[in-house]
Design a protein around this nucleic acid. Sequence first.
DNA 1: CATGAATGAGTATTCATTCAT
DNA 2: GATGAATGAATACTCATTCAT
Lengths: 184, 184, 184, 184
Amino acid sequence: MTKTRREQAEWRREQLLDAALKVFAAKGVDGASVKDIAEAAGVTPGLLYRYFESKEALVTTLLSERGFLPQLRELLTADHRGRPAVEMLTELLGAFDALLADNADLMAVFFGATQARAALAELVGEGQRLIGDFLAARVAEGELRPHDTATAARTLFATVAVSRRTGSPLDVARLVELLFPHER
Amino acid sequence: MTKTRREQAEWRREQLLDAALKVFAAKGVDGASVKDIAEAAGVTPGLLYRYFESKEALVTTLLSERGFLPQLRELLTADHRGRPAVEMLTELLGAFDALLADNADLMAVFFGATQARAALAELVGEGQRLIGDFLAARVAEGELRPHDTATAARTLFATVAVSRRTGSPLDVARLVELLFPHER
Amino acid sequence: MTKTRREQAEWRREQLLDAALKVFAAKGVDGASVKDIAEAAGVTPGLLYRYFESKEALVTTLLSERGFLPQLRELLTADHRGRPAVEMLTELLGAFDALLADNADLMAVFFGATQARAALAELVGEGQRLIGDFLAARVAEGELRPHDTATAARTLFATVAVSRRTGSPLDVARLVELLFPHER
Amino acid sequence: MTKTRREQAEWRREQLLDAALKVFAAKGVDGASVKDIAEAAGVTPGLLYRYFESKEALVTTLLSERGFLPQLRELLTADHRGRPAVEMLTELLGAFDALLADNADLMAVFFGATQARAALAELVGEGQRLIGDFLAARVAEGELRPHDTATAARTLFATVAVSRRTGSPLDVARLVELLFPHER
DNA sequence: CATGAATGAGTATTCATTCAT
DNA sequence: GATGAATGAATACTCATTCAT
């Protein structure tokens, strides 16, 4: 029942990564001190340096070892043949969503600035609401076909914002054409 | 031509906010020191405290005064009647995109973690590519109608991710139905 | 009577150098902490960094600004003509000795290892004594002319040791010939 | 061929002292960490404490066990009768010089301050050169008898410096009289 | 209005040492 | 005998903030 040295070391390493992930997510990478992490792991700061070269190494290790890109890849490349695309797609995106939820802490590390989070939420919320209102009005006037305007607004807003942030330019006309094909 | 006291004070305040925004965007809020900001403004750190109570106040001021939510609001609530919805929507999203581009520095403050940026870009890139491949395969098989699969993939990915991040739950089925109505 | 800012800064700088020199001499450069130096100056450690970039900069500044090489140079190159060489030389070496005494703290910085100082003193003491005994015996036997054997021993020992330490090889035969010319 | 327990222990002890001496000489006592020494000996830091109570004990052991005072004593007290003093003295000092060379590492431990070594060398070099110039000038003027002025300068400089450093006061007049007897 | 000297609390990191295995 | 996990205290250095000038 007792651990061997090797097991104990592996366990401690994981425990430290767990603690670091949690603390980084809560306070941001810069906002979290090595002492914070050590305390969260019930350990002295010095011990951290037996397992990781530096605080920065902790971050990069977290990003590489705890990154969920492999899972994402597996998820999306599995053999999906023989089942209806729409059903399949729904399941797929659901799984992707769940993956993000499971890795909420890591996602939080990607987005630092704890302080600005509320302001960001407000911006996103209002943006989506306003676009939704616009769409709903046009549906009411009969110009656009009836559809889930709230979801459409979300889609439009998110796509523009993510494209802008990740640096890959977006052809807005294509996006609109995708959602509202052949409408005039 | 000389400034009044009031004008000079206002000018300095704005100058300090400009400097802070630039430095925050470049180094992250935590990574930027008051000295950094002061230097960027060609001023001593002490002076900052005549205009702002603390470093934190600088951030919140930036978020509230330099937030582009008012512009966004104006943009989306203008009177759009009398012009085709699709044309209008394209213009609207284009303007929104431009607004984000103009406020790139502020957006950078929303998303800190300089260190993780590369990892995030990789995740987003690969995720979108994989979904795109899936869609293209189904179009090739004739199951899905021909469409811009790359843009669709972007849309799906971005919408799921943003929803997860902003905390508002997303009904994935609705999202799929929106993009691929009545397909089976 | 009050100091200008400029004067105060200059004064503080010197005060910090004074404190550093004293502490370095007492504890050795490595043994002395920045906190030690700050305390010796009645100041917070942080302040030190307004005046010097690092602890190392403190050492090099001490070596360059407080080095007494200029004084030594002046001492030895002054115009000595017109006075007997022996008288002059005695005065010169006395002044050199006084210069070293005045800069005892700095000399202590040149020679670190507080711990080994006693052992070194013992080595030097015994070495000189033994050489002195040898010389005295030979004088007693009439082989060497009567002379101040203690001083001769000191001279021989010191010259060999310093040459070895400073890396410039010494021709021992020349040294002996210098002190005991034509004796056999 | 295999070692007894006792022999193995003795061997390890010596090996650790060897490693410590080498590392201390290279990095200075304070600059060398126990880990450095252990690594140099191909061993873990913990093991050091089975053989020596502390890092300090390592230094004092080195100083007492590896001190070459016994050898120096033997060298200088051997029976020298029956051979000319000058020849004997030359041989003696040569052996002393060799002894210092053999124990260069230990000598380096006596003199720490790696940082100041260059400054010290400059001081010594220039000092000896200037005194040499003075002597040469007086020889040229015929006031002093022709002699090896460079060696004399070295002798004078070294003797004053060592005396000052070891704390035993020196009568400068006696030193001059020793080198230049009856000259005026 | 603006400076810059000064502080106090904090930072990441190192290290001598202990001890269970 | 030897290891290596763990600690606690120290280290050099940074930084937000205050305030006399």
